[in-house]
């Protein structure tokens, strides 16, 4: 599993792993039921402390993104959100705020921001659809 860690950003390595696994799932590189490498395998591949990998997996498990089956390994779970709508909204709101601050700094007005948002959403949907078509062939 190819995960690229950016040490210079300062952001905790386990969060980077969590984020990248999530984006792999969102992007279709990982599907429900796919097996993740073991803590040992991934630690060896990335040359990272196994505790960091374990922390990342625990985090993913807590969020029900990944589930562990005894003796078999860790698998991507079928998307079943466990967090309440409020918690989910709060998560995304924090990220949106950062984007909005940046947009404000580069002088995009409200309409431009909304248009950009629509653009990005339809692009992601398109990418997902073409992936599904490709894999069904």
């Amino acid at each position: 599993m190819y995960i690229r860690l950016d040490q210079s950003s300062g952001s905790p390595l386990y969060l980077q792993i969590v984020d990248q696994v999530k984006s792999m799932i969102a992007g279709g590189a990982l599907r429900a039921g796919d097996r993740l490498p073991t803590v040992r395998e991934l630690a060896s591949e990335l040359v990272v402390n196994p505790n960091t990998i374990a922390h990342a997996y625990q985090h993913l498990e807590r969020e029900r993104v990944v589930e562990t089956r005894r003796g078999l390994g860790s698998f991507v779970s079928a998307a079943e959100p466990v967090l309440s709508l409020g918690a989910r909204r709060a998560r995304v709101a924090a990220l949106l705020d950062r984007a909005l601050v940046e947009a404000h700094h580069v002088d995009l007005n409200a309409d431009e921001i909304r248009a950009l948002l629509e653009e990005r959403m339809s692009e992601m949907a398109d990418a997902e659809r073409s992936d599904e078509l490709a894999s069904s062939k």
């Binding site: 040992r40 630690a43 060896s44 040359v47 990272v48 402390n49 196994p50």
Partner: peptide
């Protein structure tokens, strides 16, 4: 260096 570190990591298991 990467080989070295990887061996250290593997040894922790």
């Amino acid at each position: 260096r990467s080989e070295f570190d990887r061996t250290v990591i593997d040894a922790l298991h």
